[in-house]
Design a protein around this nucleic acid. Structure first.
Length: 203
DNA sequence: TAGACGATAGCCT
DNA sequence: GGCTATCGTCTAA
């Protein structure tokens, strides 16, 4: 598993969001076990986008987005869910791609244990969408939280990185509007893999 | 230092 | 489809 080069994150943020579909997200848990999952849904957030956290300038929370590209921006949403982004654009320009859904693949068992706990895990099927379909769900399944804010996504020895994966053909990609925002709600800046059962929402 | 609110998910009708 | 938990962050004072 070779990480994508930092240059990948310097391309136009919408292109990066589209290009991240099919890529592998690799998570090394504190116990040393490694999970490899496939990204199937993303959203782009740019510096001149009213829905972007960084729109009004730098703050303590969004600092990572203003830094160099290829790092993880992780924040808490609704006081409950962690959300994972990949920072794009050069240092000083705050843009990012929100990872909204993943397919657990071979790592499903571990993700189920993370999400539901050892006890309940026995009753969950490997295709249960709750372990990947949604930004708050995938972070819970992958144990992504504040400690991973600023993690280097190009470091193959780090706790979290993104590697090459499948090439998704254009006719299997749906481009549509983003979810759960009030400003910039009309921008078609959400991308997902049509054939994936783990997409959070169709539309 | 108080008050409003959010890039959601889960439970209820 | 509607309701709301829950808390960190930001803003205004």
């Amino acid at each position: 598993m070779t990480p994508l080069p930092r240059d990948f994150y310097l391309q136009d943020t919408l292109s990066a969001a589209r290009a991240l579909l099919g890529k592998r997200l690799v998570r090394r848990f504190p116990d040393g076990e490694v999970a490899v999952v496939r990204i199937v849904e993303t959203e782009a957030y740019t510096h001149d986008d009213p829905a972007c956290h960084a729109y009004k300038g730098i703050t303590e929370r969004n600092r990572t987005m203003f830094g160099p590209p290829g790092y993880a921006y992780v924040y808490l949403n609704y006081g409950i869910h962690w959300c994972l982004n990949a920072v794009t654009a050069p240092q000083g320009v705050a843009e990012a791609v929100l990872i909204r859904a993943i397919e657990p693949g071979e790592s499903a068992l571990r993700l189920i244990r993370n999400y539901f706990g050892e006890q309940e895990a026995d009753t969950i099927t490997l295709t249960d969408k709750r372990i990947g379909a949604g930004p708050g769900r995938l972070t819970r399944a992958l144990v992504v939280n504040r400690t991973l804010d600023g993690a280097d996504l190009t470091d193959e020895r780090g706790p979290l990185f993104i590697a090459q994966g499948d090439d998704i053909p254009d006719d299997d990609v749906v481009t549509t509007t983003r979810i759960g925002i009030t400003r910039g709600a009309d921008f078609p800046w959400r991308f997902y893999v049509r054939s994936s059962p783990f997409v959070s929402r169709r539309g």
